[in-house]
């Protein structure tokens, strides 16, 4: 089972900071203008949200895993709901390598696998190095083409 790049924790933690800041800001605005609440409430909201967010990010990292198997791509993820997805290579429509602005900032990339399915239609593997992502994309593409060739009618 492959793990994600450890630096993904930084990215997810940053996201948690942002969420905590928004929640803290909203509760500060609320305590300032709407309800008469103690001063420490916004700070507490920020701290709790931050702690929970960071803990979640760490947990998520520990629970994330993927594996390129013989006939399929296998992923395992999720903190509250554990999801295990099997994507047979035959079903891969196309593979993208994507790098968002924040991902570029921390030097990471993700690979997105598309199928024709109605809900598991796109499967994203975040937290790869740019080279790793390109390599995985290339590998999955080759495997998909090979599988397709096997199954050509």
């Amino acid at each position: 089972m492959n793990r994600l790049h450890p630096r993904i924790r930084v990215l997810w933690a940053l996201r948690a900071v942002l969420t905590a800041a928004i929640l803290g800001g909203a509760s500060w605005l609320g305590s300032r203008f709407a309800v008469d609440a103690p001063r420490w409430i916004p700070a507490a909201v920020f701290a709790v949200a931050l702690l929970a967010g960071v803990a979640l990010a760490l947990l998520r990292y520990r629970l994330w895993g993927y594996e390129v198997r013989e006939d399929s791509l296998y992923l395992e993820r999720g903190v509250f709901t554990r999801v295990r997805t099997v994507v047979p290579f035959v079903r891969i429509q196309h593979v993208d390598s994507a790098r968002g602005p924040v991902e570029r900032l921390v030097g990471l990339a993700s690979t997105v696998v598309y199928t024709a399915g109605s809900r598991g239609a796109d499967v994203k593997i975040p937290g790869l190095t740019p080279e790793g992502s390109d390599e995985l994309q290339e590998r999955l593409k080759r495997l998909a083409i090979r599988a397709e060739g096997d199954d050509a009618v």
């Binding site: 999720g78 509250f80 709901t81 554990r82 999801v83 295990r84 997805t85 079903r91 024709a116």
Partner: peptide
């Protein structure tokens, strides 16, 4: 016709 197989377990299901 199967595209992907998804196995999901919520906190309560676990």
């Amino acid at each position: 016709r199967i595209q992907t197989v998804i196995d999901a377990r919520t906190l309560f299901q676990r």
